[in-house]
Write a protein that binds this DNA or RNA. Sequence first.
DNA 1: GCCCGTTTTCAGCCTCTTTTCAGAAATCCA
DNA 2: TGGATTTCTGAAAAGAGGCTGAAAACGGGC
Lengths: 225, 225
Amino acid sequence: MRVLIIEDEPRLAGTLADIVEDMGYTAAIRHDGNQGLDEALSGVYEAIVLDVMLPGLNGFDLLKTIRAEHVETPVLMLTARSELADRVRGLESGADYYLTKPFETLEFQACLRAIIRRKGAIIPEIRQFDDLSFSPTEGRLTCRDRSLLLSAKEKEIMSLLFLNPHSPVSKETLLTKVWGYDSDAVDNNVEAYISFLRKKLLLLGSRVQITARRRIGYSLEVSEL
Amino acid sequence: MRVLIIEDEPRLAGTLADIVEDMGYTAAIRHDGNQGLDEALSGVYEAIVLDVMLPGLNGFDLLKTIRAEHVETPVLMLTARSELADRVRGLESGADYYLTKPFETLEFQACLRAIIRRKGAIIPEIRQFDDLSFSPTEGRLTCRDRSLLLSAKEKEIMSLLFLNPHSPVSKETLLTKVWGYDSDAVDNNVEAYISFLRKKLLLLGSRVQITARRRIGYSLEVSEL
DNA sequence: GCCCGTTTTCAGCCTCTTTTCAGAAATCCA
DNA sequence: TGGATTTCTGAAAAGAGGCTGAAAACGGGC
């Protein structure tokens, strides 16, 4: 799961790469428009972070070109200006989102996650939390040398919990995101699955556990012991 | 610090209000376009969360009207569709951001913070008062190296107290905001919870304490010693 | 149709939260 | 000072939410 960053300013490019890697992706960096275009056309990226001002070929034209070539990779555009005209132009060139510098790390992450999710992909490849790692595509949980596969529903629940460890996910969220908006599943369905997942965590011997916060939700936490 | 939510679906409106309040704002809700417009024109809000589909007056037109009246409150638009045309139209109407349903709490908060910050205001997501810090989303109180989690009701009460330390919050306010408008909870319920919270502050060893002002309410104060 | 793993359902138990109550303490005011 | 009022808090009861084992129902592959 790779993200392409096309940004000529080295410091910003580095920072972005760090953030993206924190999210569980591998980052590739290109510093000019033409190199960026070549790379983007490869179509192997999960998302592209694209600065508007670039040497060689500007962001708008780069974007139009790859869209013309039917590369549908989600694109997050970055610009120093927040002019309406620019933002509209960005969207019309085929950007999925438009972020004005400066921005917060959290905001950037949220937007990146949002555009990737919007195109239907499941978020990063391998996510790590303490001694536990999780591959959402495969649905594999690994702790040290032990590893096991999750069922479809278990996998989706784990994905949501892994998205932001420590921050609780409510049963309501789980029900609508995993079972669907108009399903008639009830709270106990979630509880049953949480129970399944806990058994598997125990089996793996991980220090990570799923903690219930009454009336609030479930979150991943590292065991105190 | 108020945020106006213009959203006709009551459930979503309620959820958004909760989130916004967790961030330390006061939420006002309007369920239809015309009422929303009146409220928005007052210009007293820090930000407006605006659904596109509304009875009475749609979001685009509402937004254009208030911008024509030179109300520059940041606006976060919500829509069920992610059509390019819609997004362009939203931006052209004067929206600061465009969020497609469904979205994550975190994503929503990040965007809201972003648009407010962009217009110059600042909001910390962790609130600090003397040696005590409080994270409303997580419901965690921290003092130096010690930290603990609050229950649902404790959390809500603490949120309200933290909103304006030193300024007292009445039992009546607490009852309506925490227990709800039509609950039959009595003053002693509040008193009991204040007592719980005091115990927890003691446990943390914080200098912050909850002071009662007879017939007026409770406020956070720093201990004299 | 049968087998398998997955998913749902149910019931009983357990735990934490919330409410209730009663007496003690503090505060106010005449 | 003394009585009325308000607030505090420990303990217990009531309630809601959460857990889990077992069994039933489902559904895809052979």
